[in-house]
Write a protein that binds this DNA or RNA. Structure first.
Length: 721
DNA sequence: TTGAACTCGGTTTTT
DNA sequence: CCGAGTTCAA
């Protein structure tokens, strides 16, 4: 494992604050691993005194594996973990200081959203008037430190937002639950309120390392700042050019201001790329130079020049999918392992056409990311039953399963139960018990059926709890709930393709629970649930033989010999949501991330027409296409005579591609926005938009009568006035 | 309390 | 075009 001089500096500079700016493909993980191995093996630092924080479990697992592979000593006490897992573990250990029970539930973003919606409905506010997403964003911002309650936030109704925030926090506490943001912010709060606890952790962790530092938010910065302020041996590793999560709170200032916050900080840049061909690296570097928010880093490589980047224009999205799959078939015929091929897109919706064509050509593929297994409805339902066994205060879990399967507790009854529980400051579950034991003054009309159903529900939960207490196997408890809750029967009776799949998923969950018990025989249900919420479950089979499809966000940290980057059109990539402000810089970083995943070949494509929101849209080529230096690229337009964007007919004969390589001339359109024109049929009008390339423009015209129409400029009977 | 009919808006998602 | 939220009738 040879290291270059910069990498060696990173390994050897162990004392004091250090920021490593590690370019794409610069051997970052290799270097971090070497640094930790050096600390343990050569500097005699106990693994117990080292903390390595990452963002994803995948990254932490890889790092741990590589360290343990490179080292002879025992690293059980070495903490290589995600921010969230680290905080969750810490908070459970110190729960009593916060007045929380050790068995608190963790709410993921989806559950936070549900809680917000519940509050809105309790407050009698329609989601149309106040967006739950905007609220969640506001709450997240407060928790991740980019906003305080005193700030004049840019929201529709600040006081209302604050009220809802307080209610949200109150509900979390009543449910003995913490959300993702709270894991971090409560840890900070704990450290601030109990300096003796902070000191304990400061003394323990002599060396702290943070990976993917560009993705840290302000709260996470504060956390590592506090933790490291005694020993000051903090090493952060990141790449400002790969910061693509600012919309999730990642604060690029953590990188830009590192030296201001940490005295005597050193900075080391890793600029040699070992991954990609020279063409790709040169082109990507030129593109990212258009950004202003950078520390400035110049990637270089001693790799071969390699093939030119192929930039392909196609008539429409279907042609694009056909083209990509056709090229994949060619690679396959050259005996390229499909695992080395990946297709990237900006939005998940774009995967469908690619999938259709891959299936048509019998090419195995796998979508990476998208809907996570544990986010599926049926899985969440069962997990909420299980959560109730660990934390019966978890009202969100109760509300989720109380009428699943249906027990005749509809929205109205539930509302009454809920408000009774809230008024009397008891949990929903306790409220149900009251109802069943009839020692209630609840003004709820109860039917016999409803009471007996509730009784069954409560005894189900209690019996399952007994099983847990008597050390039953987790899988037995799971099966007990699945069958005795009536959930299995309920799904099974539906007999749809959908319900069959859900049942299969529940089987899969059973397997996961079994596997967990085998892997961690000493751990309990609470640990299992936490590992799922925090995504600590191991990735399924990584067996080869398939093409990978993913969003560009999903591609971060990965590499492939052959990359197809699709949908390079304005409003798609860059996204229509990001075209103003500093949104563009982040989209450009995204483009840069995508390009630098490719090792050998990079094929970038865009289409003139694309079905978007069920309508055919004409978007001009992405501005990023213009930013590609031509000396590293080969521009090709591919036309297919039977241009027919409306048919879904895959049985058309195979298209014959023109293998020409026409360079796109960048010529200015003679049509301009705000130009006055006259149309033979519709009369005078104003151009409001010009789409597409010179000679092939579509122009959007607003006429005197207010109507807006789109024309192919070369055919439309118009004259410029 | 449930379903059908309607309107509306629509990125990215490490934990 | 599709899914979520909302509204209204039974």
């Amino acid at each position: 494992m040879e290291l270059n001089p910069s990498q060696i500096k990173v390994v050897q500079n162990i004392d004091g604050p250090l920021m490593v700016l590690a370019g794409a493909g610069s051997g970052k993980t290799r270097t971090i691993v070497a640094r930790i191995v050096n600390l343990i093996e050569n500097k005699n630092i106990s693994p117990y005194r080292i903390l390595a924080l990452t963002f994803s479990n995948k990254a932490s697992k890889e790092m741990r594996d590589r360290i343990s592979y490179a080292i002879s000593s025992d690293i059980k006490t070495l903490q290589v973990t995600t921010f969230h897992s680290f905080c969750a573990r810490l908070l459970r250990n110190e729960a009593k200081y916060l007045g929380l029970s050790k068995t608190f539930s963790i709410y993921d973003d989806g559950e936070s959203r549900i809680l917000i919606k519940n509050i809105l409905s309790r407050f009698g506010i329609s989601q149309k008037d106040v967006s739950p997403y905007e609220l969640l964003d506001y709450i997240n911002k407060i928790k991740n430190g980019s906003l305080t309650l005193d700030d004049d936030a840019d929201v529709t109704n600040l006081q209302q937002f604050k009220d809802i925030y307080f209610e949200y926090e109150k509900n979390l506490r009543q449910s003995n639950a913490i959300d993702f943001g709270g894991l971090i912010s409560l840890t900070i709060e704990l450290f601030k309120n109990f300096p003796e606890i902070l000191l304990r952790y400061q003394q323990r962790f002599e060396y702290i390392l943070v990976d993917e530092y560009q993705d840290t938010n302000h709260a996470q910065f504060e956390l590592i700042y506090l933790l490291s302020s005694l020993k000051k041996n903090i090493c952060v590793v990141g790449d400002e050019d790969q910061s693509i999560y600012s919309w999730r709170g990642a604060d690029i200032n953590n990188i830009l201001n590192f030296e201001k916050k940490f005295n005597n900080a050193k900075i080391i840049k890793l600029e040699q790329n070992y991954r990609s061909s020279k063409n790709i690296i040169e082109a990507a570097s030129k593109v990212i130079e258009n950004n202003n928010d950078r520390k400035g880093k110049k990637l270089w490589t001693s790799n071969d020049k390699g093939k030119e980047i192929q930039v392909i224009e196609l008539a429409n999205d279907k042609e694009e999918a056909k083209y990509v799959v056709d090229e994949i078939v060619k690679l396959k015929n050259e005996n390229v392992d499909l695992t080395e091929i990946s297709v990237f897109y900006r939005t998940n919706a774009q995967s469908r056409l690619i999938e259709d064509h891959l299936r048509r050509f019998d090419i195995p593929y796998k979508i990476i990311g998208s809907v996570r297994f544990y986010d599926r409805k049926e899985i969440k339902d069962l997990l909420c039953y299980m959560r109730l066994l660990v934390n019966e205060d978890d009202s969100l879990a109760v509300s989720r399963v109380i009428n699943t399967p249906t027990r005749g507790i509809g929205a109205v009854t539930f509302k009454k139960l809920e408000s009774y529980a809230l008024e009397n400051e008891i949990s929903l579950y306790a409220c149900l018990s009251c109802l069943v034991e009839k020692d209630n003054n609840l003004k709820i009309r109860t039917t016999k059926k409803m009471l007996s159903e509730l009784e069954r529900f409560i005894s189900l939960v209690e019996e399952a709890k007994n099983m847990l207490r008597s050390d039953s196997k987790l899988s037995e408890v799971y099966e007990y709930i699945l069958f005795n809750s009536g959930y299995y029967e309920w799904l099974n009776s539906q007999k749809t393709v959908e319900s069959k799949m859900r049942l299969e998923n529940l089987d899969e969950l059973s397997n996961a629970i079994n596997q967990y018990s085998i892997d961690y025989p000493d751990k309990g249900l609470d640990d299992f649930l936490e590992s799922i919420t925090l995504n600590e479950q191991s990735e399924g089979d990584a067996s080869g033989g398939f093409v990978s499809l993913m969003t560009i966000h999903g591609s971060k940290g990965l590499e492939f010999f052959h990359v197809f980057l699709t949908g390079l059109e304005e409003n798609i990539f860059p996204s229509y949501r990001s075209v103003e402000g500093d949104g563009i810089e982040e989209e450009r970083r995204l483009f840069y991330v995508a390009m630098t995943r490719a090792m050998k070949t990079l094929t970038i494509s865009y289409s003139q027409a694309r079905v978007q929101f069920g309508q055919l849209q004409f978007n001009p080529p992405s501005r990023f296409i213009d930013e590609l230096p031509r000396e590293y690229c080969n521009f090709t337009k591919i036309r297919n005579d039977s241009f027919d964007s409306d048919t879904n007919d895959f049985n058309q004969e195979q298209i014959v591609y023109q293998e020409s390589s026409i360079t796109i001339e960048k010529q200015l359109s003679k049509y301009k926005v705000n130009q006055k024109i006259e149309h033979n049929l519709y009369g005078n009008g104003l151009i409001v938009d010009v789409l597409g390339n010179f000679g092939d423009e579509k122009i959007v015209i607003k006429f005197k009568d207010g109507s807006v129409k789109k024309f192919m400029a070369k055919f439309a009977p118009i004259t410029i006035l």
